[in-house]
Amino acid sequence: MELGVIDLVGGGGAMVAVNDSTRTLRRTRSIQLDHVWRALETGAWVTAGFRSATPWLSSITGESPSASSVTLRLAERIQQMPQVKATFADGVLAESALRQLTDLWSFDIAGEFARDERMLLGWALKFASGDLTMLLATWLLHNDPDAADKTAQEQFESRELHLSSLLDSMGRLDALLDPEGFNLVRAAIRHLS
């Protein structure tokens, strides 16, 4: 069977259906990322009157600002990874692995990433998320020893928080926090609850 799917259900019908639909979702997501990238290149969000691409995409998709921010990041960074992009477009690569690879990529290590893209992609296809995280962290340590300091700064700079009032007087909170901010907010919520 394709992708090493094991026939655990007599005839494998349910396993094949889940595998096929998962691959279809990934292919569709790949198409969406391509459309988002083209819109970013043309500045569609500017001509639509938005100050940044995140609220523009959020208004179009109905997704939260944090989910829209992830989509924008994937759409931008996947352009630098031709093999990863093609594998995701084929529906083979999980989006969680795609996120790990796009989080790893930066301009500072673009050459090293390009050199090792096939190997990194192989790891993403072979290893579970936790193992992949360790492998990518080790790879990054060897290829960019100053990454830990830069990563902390990038995390700090990419923080965002959105508080929205809903029609029924409820409220919605979407946030992307650096580790220190996350720990502070978690402690405050625990204290209040």
Rank of each mutant, 00 (worst) to 15 (best):
E2A: 05
S66F: 12
E160V: 13
S96L: 14
N143Y: 03
S66M: 13
S21L: 07
G4I: 01
T151A: 11
W56G: 02
T28D: 12
F127T: 09
R77F: 12
L140I: 04
F88V: 06
H142Y: 06
L93Q: 05
L121P: 00
M1K: 05
T71N: 06
A94G: 04
E157K: 03
R51A: 15
E2V: 02
T54V: 12
A39Y: 05
A147T: 05
S58H: 06
L166C: 12
Q153N: 12
T138M: 09
A39L: 08
F50N: 00
H191S: 05
A75I: 05
F50R: 04
Q80Y: 15
G49M: 00
I189E: 00
G10H: 08
S106T: 06
K150W: 12
L104E: 00
S165D: 15
F113V: 13
V36A: 12
W45M: 00
A137H: 10
Q155F: 08
M170D: 05
L192G: 02
K126S: 15
W123Q: 15
A188F: 00
E95F: 07
L125M: 01
D7L: 10
L8T: 10
L33I: 07
L3C: 06
V92D: 10
L167P: 15
I31D: 15
A89M: 03
D20V: 14
L125E: 09
V70T: 13
D116S: 01
T22F: 10
L121F: 15
F156A: 14
I109S: 01
A17S: 13
F50K: 09
F113C: 08
P55C: 15
W37M: 15
L163N: 03
V16P: 10
D146V: 10
G13I: 07
E180W: 07
L8F: 12
L173G: 07
M81C: 08
H142E: 07
A14F: 05
M134C: 10
T47E: 11
A86C: 01
R186E: 14
A188G: 02
T102I: 15
L161V: 06
E117I: 08
K150S: 12
E112K: 02
D7N: 13
G181P: 02
G11R: 02
A114D: 06
S59Y: 08
F50I: 11
F127L: 09
A148P: 04
G43P: 00
A97T: 01
I109R: 11
G13V: 10
D174V: 04
H191A: 04
R190L: 07
